[in-house]
């Protein structure tokens, strides 16, 4: 464990909690893509199946359980508890356009052709693009609430910090995982445009809105 990885995990946790609290306290999931949240629930479920087979550390297990739990709680709030506030008209991204090609890719490009390993690979690939329905929704409505912007920033920052962690681990331990690195790069690149808007607008106290 190095500082980049810890900071990445904390940033990831913060993102998930910001989103949960935003929905819970405003009793509304307006502006949030339920589809991205379903994809994240799928990401955590397929990645953390090793909870049942391998024990890595108390930290590792605890974080995995929290991520999965929060992720399902978010999906439940969007599709059940606060369903009336869910903006489904603007959440029109087709999930199958991501899930099906990624399932195929994870069968073709993986470290080992074993069920758990393929599911792990699927989750890594899927995570890299799971935010697309949310970004699509923001671009469609042309704006995002400030709290939603904080959520997106923390979520994007997490993988960027993991990139630093992988550079660190490569030099410190000779460890590298090409699948995670390439997917992590793609994931971080997808957020770059948003990072720019966040820094130039939200941090200066303005609401995130896109030019018409």
């Amino acid at each position: 464990m190095n500082l980049f990885r810890l900071a990445g995990d904390v940033s990831h946790l913060l993102a998930i909690i910001i989103l949960l609290l935003k929905i819970w306290r405003t009793r509304s999931c307006a502006g949030i893509s339920g589809k991205s949240q379903i994809l994240f629930a799928l990401v955590f479920t397929t990645r953390y199946l090793d909870l049942l087979t391998t024990f890595i550390s108390f930290y590792n297990t605890t974080m995995k359980v929290i991520y999965i739990g929060c992720s399902y709680a978010t999906v439940w709030m969007i599709y059940a508890k606060f369903k009336a506030t869910y903006d489904s008209n603007h959440d029109t991204f087709r999930m199958e356009f991501l899930v099906i090609p990624i399932a195929a890719l994870s069968l073709l490009v993986n470290h080992d052709f074993a069920p758990l390993e393929i599911l792990w690979t699927f989750s890594i690939y899927l995570e890299s693009v799971a935010i697309l329905p949310q970004l699509f929704m923001v671009s469609k409505t042309g704006e995002a609430e400030t709290i939603t912007s904080h959520y997106l920033f923390a979520l994007g920052l997490y993988r960027a910090l993991y990139l630093m962690n992988w550079i660190w681990r490569f030099f410190a331990e000779g460890f590298f995982d090409l699948i995670a690195i390439v997917a992590g790069l793609v994931q971080t690149i997808l957020y770059c445009d948003f990072f720019y808007l966040y820094i130039t607008k939200v941090l200066k106290g303005k609401k995130l809105s896109l030019p018409a």
Partner: peptide
Amino acid sequence: EDEERQHDEL
């Protein structure tokens, strides 16, 4: 390699 791969990251 026979051993199951371990992914120690989250």
